[in-house]
Computed example of a mutant assay.
Amino acid sequence: MTTDTTPPGGPTRTDTTPPVAKASPRTLAWQRRRRSAARFWAHYRTHRAGLVGLAVLVLFAAVALTAPLTVGSDVSSVTGAPGRPLQHPSGGFPLGTDRFGRNLLGLVVWGSRISLLVGLLAAVLSVAIGALVGITAGHFRGAYATVMMRITDWFLVMPTLVLAIALATVMSRSLGTVILAIGVTSWPTTARLVRAQTLAVESRPYIERARALGGGHAHIMLRHVLPNVMPLVLAQTTLMISSSILAEATLAFLGMGDPTVVSWGGLLQDAREAGAVSSGDWWYLVPPGIAIAVVALAFTLCGRAVESVLNPRLGVER
């Protein structure tokens, strides 16, 4: 005789499925960032002009990074120049030589390092100053905002190039001076845009809830306002780089740059001093000028595409 030992509720099952570990907040944040980056790229690649600009920038960045390997660091040396002064383009010198007999193709390649570096750093400095002024003026308001906006208006009405020349004149001639002169004179537009966006963000209900829960000024600006204005800051940075490259070329052309380094603007200044315009030495002027124009256009195309992706309401044409 057998005894049924089955429980009244039926046979029990042993669950061998391991428990699913919950993702940490940092992991979730990285997952959201990856999804956002994927969505951004999916929208960005629909802009043909933006893709063309990005391809051109990648090409110039590769040329600048590999310049020590392709042309060598001694290409800018005046002593021991390989060619005759102002030699026409030929098989040995595809872009001819400068007034010292240096290979102009190598100088243009080497100059891309300085021009791109100065443009990038000056744009970052300019946008950082503008974002700081815009966020704080939009958050605190009152007398502080009034004073900061009047200062911003003063910088807006003053010619940027004149201020940059004045700073470059009173300070030592170096790359740091050029970066500082461009950065501290070109931030007002960014400050205006960021302040308007900050005012729009702080009018939303969740900012009031953050204040009611005890969020301080730093918490609100860093955790709520800054993430919402970052897309605008990113788009403004890409647009500012092209302006910074043009400003650096202008300062170098006027003799305000660092004479110890080679840049595209410095090459134009050398060509002017050598009388390339009057003597018809077109190969001395055209290559650095085209390089400046192409890079500035590429950054502008990328900036417009980024701006259109991050703010579709602008209706920027693709």
Rank of each mutant, 00 (worst) to 15 (best):
residue 1 M to R: 07
residue 2 T to M: 14
residue 5 T to G: 06
residue 7 P to F: 13
residue 7 P to Y: 12
residue 12 T to M: 10
residue 13 R to M: 11
residue 16 T to R: 09
residue 24 S to R: 08
residue 25 P to D: 14
residue 26 R to T: 11
residue 32 R to K: 13
residue 34 R to Y: 11
residue 39 R to M: 06
residue 41 W to R: 03
residue 41 W to E: 04
residue 43 H to N: 11
residue 43 H to F: 13
residue 47 H to Y: 05
residue 49 A to M: 11
residue 50 G to M: 07
residue 51 L to I: 08
residue 51 L to T: 01
residue 54 L to K: 07
residue 55 A to M: 10
residue 55 A to W: 10
residue 56 V to I: 13
residue 63 V to G: 00
residue 63 V to W: 03
residue 65 L to T: 02
residue 67 A to G: 02
residue 67 A to M: 02
residue 68 P to L: 14
residue 68 P to K: 10
residue 71 V to W: 05
residue 73 S to L: 15
residue 75 V to R: 01
residue 76 S to V: 04
residue 78 V to F: 13
residue 79 T to L: 14
residue 80 G to P: 01
residue 82 P to G: 09
residue 85 P to Y: 13
residue 86 L to D: 07
residue 87 Q to N: 07
residue 88 H to D: 00
residue 89 P to S: 10
residue 93 F to E: 01
residue 95 L to F: 15
residue 96 G to L: 06
residue 96 G to K: 01
residue 97 T to V: 11
residue 105 L to R: 04
residue 105 L to G: 03
residue 106 G to R: 01
residue 107 L to R: 10
residue 109 V to Q: 12
residue 112 S to F: 05
residue 112 S to A: 15
residue 113 R to M: 03
residue 113 R to C: 00
residue 114 I to P: 02
residue 117 L to C: 01
residue 122 A to I: 08
residue 123 A to L: 09
residue 128 A to K: 06
residue 131 A to I: 12
residue 138 G to P: 00
residue 139 H to S: 04
residue 142 G to V: 05
residue 143 A to D: 05
residue 144 Y to F: 15
residue 148 M to T: 09
residue 151 I to E: 05
residue 151 I to G: 03
residue 151 I to T: 02
residue 152 T to N: 12
residue 153 D to I: 09
residue 157 V to G: 04
residue 157 V to K: 03
residue 158 M to F: 15
residue 160 T to H: 08
residue 163 L to I: 12
residue 165 I to M: 14
residue 173 R to L: 09
residue 173 R to Q: 10
residue 174 S to L: 03
residue 174 S to I: 00
residue 174 S to N: 08
residue 175 L to T: 09
residue 177 T to H: 01
residue 182 I to G: 01
residue 182 I to D: 04
residue 186 S to Y: 07
residue 190 T to W: 05
residue 191 A to K: 01
residue 191 A to P: 00
residue 193 L to K: 07
residue 194 V to P: 01
residue 195 R to A: 01
residue 199 L to Y: 06
residue 200 A to Y: 01
residue 207 I to R: 06
residue 208 E to T: 07
residue 208 E to H: 02
residue 211 R to N: 09
residue 211 R to P: 00
residue 212 A to S: 09
residue 213 L to D: 10
residue 215 G to S: 04
residue 217 H to A: 14
residue 218 A to M: 03
residue 218 A to I: 13
residue 219 H to M: 11
residue 224 H to P: 00
residue 228 N to E: 12
residue 230 M to A: 15
residue 231 P to T: 13
residue 232 L to Y: 08
residue 245 I to C: 02
residue 246 L to W: 10
residue 247 A to H: 05
residue 248 E to F: 08
residue 252 A to C: 11
residue 252 A to G: 12
residue 255 G to N: 06
residue 255 G to F: 06
residue 256 M to K: 13
residue 257 G to I: 12
residue 260 T to D: 02
residue 261 V to T: 12
residue 262 V to L: 08
residue 264 W to S: 03
residue 270 D to L: 13
residue 270 D to C: 08
residue 270 D to T: 14
residue 272 R to T: 12
residue 274 A to R: 05
residue 277 V to N: 07
residue 278 S to K: 07
residue 278 S to I: 15
residue 278 S to C: 10
residue 285 L to E: 05
residue 286 V to S: 02
residue 288 P to N: 06
residue 290 I to P: 02
residue 293 A to P: 00
residue 297 L to G: 04
residue 299 F to E: 03
residue 300 T to Y: 08
residue 304 R to K: 13
residue 307 E to S: 14
residue 310 L to Q: 05
residue 313 R to Q: 14
residue 314 L to Q: 09
residue 315 G to N: 01
residue 316 V to E: 02
residue 317 E to Q: 14
